[in-house]
């Protein structure tokens, strides 16, 4: 079965031989796009979070067969630069294995909320496990990113990627 989708702004096609193959498996094992991480394959850890038509999902829980014609944004295409800079500057990255999924979740949060409170950040990131940081620096990074992005035009990174020549 051939599935065509757009991944980080580019057309991609995957020939899958199992109807149950996950989007995570397709991204990593078929397309060689290793930016999205596999840490539990049960939808518990959030390491494989991507945007599917703009909504954050655990790609391990999405069947690739469901993705025909849909838009997938991974850490490569979903995350505004200030979010990534903030994660680096604030020490929100240690081993970094949870980072791609967290960055996608943060990008989604900051798309919905300009200046989220700690409580809102905690709620939004409750599905992303991190074993290294104790989360403090991640909360710092979300605030720093929100501040850096304040006043910026309300454009998604994804849209900007496409719009920019």
């Amino acid at each position: 079965m051939r599935v065509e989708m757009r991944i980080d702004g580019e057309t991609a096609a995957a020939d899958i031989d199992r109807p149950g193959e996950s989007l995570l498996s397709t991204l990593r094992d078929r397309l060689g796009l290793y930016g999205t991480k596999n840490a539990c394959e049960q939808g518990e850890c959030g390491s494989c979070t991507v945007l599917l038509d703009g909504d954050p999902v655990c790609s391990c829980l999405v069947a690739t067969a469901q993705c025909e014609g849909r838009e997938v944004k991974t850490v490569v295409g979903a995350v505004p630069r200030p979010v990534r800079d903030a994660f680096i500057a604030c020490g929100a990255v240690q081993c970094g294995f949870c980072t791609p999924g967290l960055l996608v979740s943060v990008a989604d949060l900051l798309d919905r909320e300009d200046d989220p409170s700690d409580a809102v950040i905690r709620e939004a990131l409750a599905g992303n496990l991190c074993r290294c940081t104790g989360y403090e620096k991640i909360i710092d990074a979300v605030h720093a990113a929100a501040e850096a992005m304040a006043g910026a035009p309300p454009v998604r990174a994804a849209d900007a990627t496409e719009a920019t020549p």
Binding site: G35, V76, G77, P82, C90, A148, V155
Partner: peptide
């Protein structure tokens, strides 16, 4: 070793730079 330093100040077009899929990550 990357350049140390504080978080970059917001540029006028924070989203302007396309984040390309790494061809050779």
């Amino acid at each position: 070793a990357g350049a140390p330093g504080p978080i970059a100040p917001p540029s006028s077009e924070p989203f302007a730079a396309p984040i390309a899929a790494p061809k050779s990550p």
